[in-house]
Amino acid sequence: MATATVAGRRPIENTLNTKAPTSLWVDAWRRLVRNKAAMLGLVIVLLFFFVAIFGPWLAPHDPLQINSGQDFLPPAWAPAWSINTGKVGDPQFFMGTDTIGRDVWSRLIYGARVSMVVAIVPTIIITVVGVITGLVAGFFGGTVDNLLMRVTDIVYSFPDLLFFVVIMFALRGTFIGELGNGVFLLFVALALVGWVGIARVVRGQTLSIKEKEFVEASRSIGGDSRRIMSKHILPNILSPIIIIVAFSVPRLIIAEAILGYLGLGLRPGTSSSEFFVTSWGSMMLEGQTAINAQPFMLLAPAIAVALVVMGFTFLGDGLRDALDPRMRGTG
């Protein structure tokens, strides 16, 4: 979703020249630009992408540098009531230090990479698979619907945790498991079990929309199924999809953390030159055990996740409004 926005301009012009003389996309883009909340969301999302990509140049410290004796330092600006340890913050550690004296701020910056990848890549897979399954099941109904929905029931029912244990064990040592400290494996695993929720919602919506007059009309003039699904049904069920997609972002970031809680987390980096060093999820876990000593170990990643989600939600809402055919011309 986000990538579509970032790279959105060029396809717009292409479409404009070849296909859509009514300037649907230009119109949408204008509406999007005028939507302040959406623009704020876009800025937040872009900012986090920037941090994820250029983290190593932005971080003030080596995220793995252990500062002996400087553990659990609070941020220098932290109010006195939030400090339980009697320690005094050091201005060079903006968010304080962690259990073994590493700079929380730098770790947060490095962690953006894993968390953004873990949030975005599986979300795209989940969305594509879920939407197609749901659309097909809802539109064709009958046996197709029944079989597809039984498959989702099965995927929904079997314990994904167990699935992770097995996948992590079986594939950890292999090339796939090594790829990006296990990040690749992680998002394949998350994507495999995550698409069912979207599929069911899309199916429910499709069942309802396909009985509407305009779909009937389109069908009666001989529109083929694929066209009806993509031109008539999909645009009308975008809102719930956007919400579920925006919400799957934090859910995946937290899923990565919870997997760490259960011993299935990412392989921690041992050198800051590695592509993935740490993640917000593991930072939150570590922060939870140390909540009394240094609450900012927990607060910093939690706020980061909240900002990302806020950004995606604003942007998503704006996109939906911009793409709404009924809003055309009102912008």
Binding site: R251, A257, M284, A302, V309
Partner: peptide, 26 residues
């Protein structure tokens, strides 16, 4: 839509999904 009430509810909803239960609980 797009009033303070709307934004407040967005804020609550966002914290509902972004703050993991192990954090909110404690």
């Amino acid at each position: 839509q797009n009033t303070a009430v709307d934004y407040a509810s967005l804020f609550i909803a966002t914290s509902g999904v972004t703050v993991p239960s192990f954090v909110m609980g404690i």
